[in-house]
Design a protein around this nucleic acid. Sequence first.
DNA 1: GAACGTCTACTCGGATAACTCATGTCCGAGTGATTTTGG
DNA 2: CCAAAATCACTCGGACATGAGTTATCCGAGTAGACGTTC
Lengths: 161, 161
Amino acid sequence: MKMAEGVEWALHSCLNMTWLQPGRAVSAARLAAFYGLPTAYLNKQLQALVRAGILRSVSGPRGGFRLARAPEEITLLDVVTAIEGAEEAFRCAQILRQGPGGRADVDYRQACLISQAMRRADLAWRRELAGQTLAQLREAVGDRYPDTPRNTRERLVAPPS
Amino acid sequence: MKMAEGVEWALHSCLNMTWLQPGRAVSAARLAAFYGLPTAYLNKQLQALVRAGILRSVSGPRGGFRLARAPEEITLLDVVTAIEGAEEAFRCAQILRQGPGGRADVDYRQACLISQAMRRADLAWRRELAGQTLAQLREAVGDRYPDTPRNTRERLVAPPS
DNA sequence: GAACGTCTACTCGGATAACTCATGTCCGAGTGATTTTGG
DNA sequence: CCAAAATCACTCGGACATGAGTTATCCGAGTAGACGTTC
């Protein structure tokens, strides 16, 4: 049960975009150069964020990606779900149906107590992620690392070399 | 981020074993026949549970697997960890180290606020799973489905054929 | 000088390989019960 | 009849194929800006 590596990239990239002036787009190439990531593959992850409605893409010169809505309205769960998919980690295969007394007309994803327990854990995980917004993260980072916002903005607008 | 299918098998198998008289061993073949699972592969999962100290294996005729300790002392987290491994789903690759101002002497798994948030969610998930023991599950199932304990015991001891 | 048409360069977007890890299977080592044989 | 030893069948245990999903890459479609040309 390992999470895709693209989740980390997506989270950091989205957080970095919160420091840009609204409406300003950043190309996938610059976002990738920020952490030395493979450009094409990061682009793929950003496309997933576009499909999820978190980012908005702009074609042509001066184009790129920008946040589709305010950082206050984007939770960590939104980003994780966009990359990993909405289905929960534990998928009940309803093996009780094959056991003694198993019935075909029963939904064991609801009836099975093991399935219920696993879903409770999954909900706790989701609740924790849904309670954190990009805006809260941006503020926390700004407090602890005051130089980060400016450095990030400069490097995203005009990368070195 | 999908969980291994063996987790479901392991959970149900361990729960079924709680209804056997203590010290009684069940072969992997009978546990597999219970839900129509592939015997060899279930055996592989049970071996992982043995390595984790949850089960104890007995060789030879009348051998098999049995719980290594009381159901009150086995949590769902124990079983899940035994199959999936102890490392958390989100593994911080410390990409901040490659960014501007990144330092090699900083552990970004601790310093990165994104990493912290993901770890909080992971801990919430683990806490939920650690709060459920096999004994609690066994009691809940016995209350809701009174026939299950007897049916399970009979079928594990003498499967139809 | 201004407006229009063309052209270019830059961007995303999806289709296409390579590789890792989970899935699935097999046969050998070990062991305890059973049977057989001798006293 | 009893005991001891050899046999045997059953079990786990790890080593070996297979397949799906993630990782990684590439090139084409589309677009906005820039340039040159013309009125």
